[in-house]
Simulated assay, not measured.
Amino acid sequence: MANRKSSTTDVALRVATAMKQMGIDGLPRNYELVYEAYAGSNPDLVRDFIALGKYKTQAALDELGRKYLPHQHEASVLQRSAGAISNEMSNFMDLLSQERSSLNDYGRLIGEASQVIGSVGGALGSSLEALQRATELRVTHTAEMAEKVAAQSATMDGIQKEMAEFEAMKFVDPPTKLGNRRAFNKALARVYSNPNLPMLCGVVVAEVDAERRFSPAQIEALSDHLVTFYGGLIRQAFPTNDLAVRFDGLRFGFLFNTADEGEVERLIDLLRAAFQTVALRDPRTNRNLGHLTLSAGVCMSDRADSALDLSSACERALLEAKASGGDQIVIYGRGDEVPAGKEWMLYRA
């Protein structure tokens, strides 16, 4: 059990290899799309991905992404919201046009009545009746106008609320309140926004070693509790100025804003120590279930050329940590004896 490899880590490595073989650009949205296709959790996505053929254009990938991963294409969501707002504004302008027409009609009736009153005194009564009817129609129309404007305002408020909720939640993992994979991908892309001068930082992919203590069936039964418990523990113990996210299951990602490899290792060790401080308890009986451990793969940003390479390096380091029994940190680095441009080497911390 201790030597069992993480299937999700295997998938991540297959994704990185497949993307290079198929010539797919290492964009965060492409990585997530290919990852989900290879993970196989959505059969429809797998079928449509295969249907794209051996050589997949960026346009075809984006079309697939908009269908299955809309959060990676927030521009489309914002465009829909902008379109809804535009329609509401058009409707509002129509109401204003109707109001202007009503005012014109009202003015015309007043003018006609004034002329009649001035020229034919005997018709004064009928003119006043016409003026009264126009006034009553005006009052009714004004009330209807107020109701329509109120309805339009409520619709606009709903659209604004929807957009605010979308902005607030698109980078959040709901069960843990940590960041999500999308936040992680965005942060990695920002690291290499200037390829000639990448941001110096340390990146970690970690996984709770639940398999060292529980059977697969027990993990499945406790899965929701494990996610919320360890997600909350990480949220409490993690530095607020750094990024912590949950990918899926019990896999987490971290980005430390430091170029000091030793500091990254120290911070991960503090997190692992927190795992040993707080005991896991059964959510139903409150029975003490002991302490789980954490395995982590680390890579510094100056040892990779792109966001895809950086995440792949962390995944490979994590795979090594899990394969060696778990409960350890493996750092992905380059030895002094290895010439530039050659293979990476792994070494345990």
Rank of each mutant, 00 (worst) to 15 (best):
L308I: 03
E207I: 04
D25I: 00
R334E: 06
A259G: 09
A304L: 03
L52R: 10
R284D: 15
Q72C: 09
H291I: 01
D336T: 04
K186W: 04
Q98N: 11
A313K: 14
R316N: 12
V264S: 13
D173K: 08
R47L: 03
M163T: 11
L289K: 14
G290K: 11
A279D: 06
A189L: 03
K186P: 00
P195W: 02
P70V: 04
D224L: 08
I24C: 11
T285R: 12
F254W: 07
N185T: 02
V208D: 05
N257L: 10
L109Y: 05
T142W: 07
A75F: 10
L131R: 01
I268N: 00
Q276P: 00
E343Q: 13
I110P: 00
V77C: 08
R266A: 13
A273S: 14
V15D: 11
N194R: 14
D305L: 08
F166A: 09
L27M: 15
E88H: 06
A307R: 08
G290H: 10
D282P: 07
A317H: 04
L45S: 11
E265T: 10
D209V: 00
R108S: 13
R281D: 08
G297E: 09
A187D: 13
G297C: 10
G26T: 05
N104Q: 10
A340H: 12
R213N: 09
I110D: 00
P174T: 08
R213V: 07
G335E: 13
R266M: 07
A113Y: 01
A321S: 11
T8C: 07
R138V: 00
C201M: 13
L308G: 05
D260A: 07
M199Y: 14
E315H: 11
E36H: 10
L69H: 12
L200D: 12
M199S: 15
A307Y: 00
R303A: 10
D209G: 09
Y38C: 03
L292R: 07
E207R: 09
L124G: 09
Q58R: 09
A259Q: 14
T228G: 02
Q276H: 02
L13D: 05
N42Y: 05
R235V: 03
R66W: 02
N288S: 06
E99N: 14
C314D: 04
D105I: 04
E136M: 02
G83F: 00
A12W: 04
H141R: 15
E261L: 02
A349D: 12
A16F: 03
L310H: 12
M156I: 08
A18W: 12
H141N: 15
A187C: 11
R108M: 09
N42I: 12
V191C: 07
R213C: 07
A16L: 06
R348L: 04
S126P: 00
E129A: 13
F229R: 08
P174G: 09
P174C: 09
L308P: 01
G290C: 01
L78G: 06
S223F: 01
Q72I: 02
P174A: 13
E36N: 10
Y55R: 14
A37Q: 05
R190M: 05
V264P: 06
V11L: 04
E207L: 02
A189T: 05
T17Q: 15
R29Y: 05
Q58Y: 03
M22A: 15
T258N: 04
F49H: 05
R251S: 14
V139K: 07
D25S: 13
F171H: 12
A217W: 06
L255K: 07
L318W: 01
Y347F: 01
R100P: 01
H73P: 01
R303G: 08
N241R: 13
R133Q: 11
E99T: 14
